[in-house]
């Protein structure tokens, strides 16, 4: 628990202070998603969903998003990734990359759909193509590298 809180604090600081400086063409990596992914491949779906909720809440508090938007998205993604990680070899970088990419795209899609419902709607296709997809790719590349270095324990197939 303590490790999770420290990791969350670290990611909050990194996402606020460092990630904007790593932006390429205005697209920055989502370190919260990488943290959640790393956690989700190590724990069960229920813990991953709860962790996603808290991570999302902090992400919401640090952004202009309505509170609960990322909490909702990341809860769902944490749950799904954790469930999927029991079925695929998440130790392999290619799988991690693919899952992270999928998670990023899904996060973008859910966010856009929720924004249509609760907030000002955005053009879905262009937002997915020009914001969600580059963000997901960037996050996936960075996340695969980081997880390769940090080597989190996995709960799925080895």
């Amino acid at each position: 628990m303590m490790a999770f809180l420290l990791a969350l604090l670290g990611v909050c600081l990194l996402q606020t202070a460092i990630a904007p400086r790593l932006a390429i063409g205005g697209v920055q990596p989502d370190l919260f998603l990488i943290l959640l992914f790393g956690l989700s491949i190590s724990v069960g779906p229920e813990l991953a969903a709860a962790a996603g909720f808290f991570i999302g809440l902090y992400q919401d508090s640090l952004s202009g998003a309505p509170l609960g938007l990322n909490a909702f998205t990341l809860s769902l993604i944490g749950f799904l990734v954790s469930g999927l990680s029991e079925q695929v070899k998440t130790t392999q970088p290619a799988w991690r990359f693919a899952l992270l990419c999928l998670a990023g795209l899904l996060s973008g899609l859910i966010t856009l759909l929720l924004l249509r419902f609760f907030h000002a709607p955005r053009p879905l296709v262009s937002a997915l193509l020009w914001t969600a997809l580059p963000g997901a790719l960037y996050t996936a590349i960075l996340g695969t590298g980081l997880l390769g270095v940090l080597k989190p324990k996995t709960n799925g197939l080895v």
Binding site: P45, E46, P66, G68, S75, F118
Partner: peptide, 30 residues
Amino acid sequence: RTLVLSTALLLAFVLMTLQARSGNSVALIT
């Protein structure tokens, strides 16, 4: 599993709904 996920999603949904309603301070305080 389903329960935890449902609770998290519901809480998030409620928070969003509360914030979407003008004048509500719960979400802002949180």
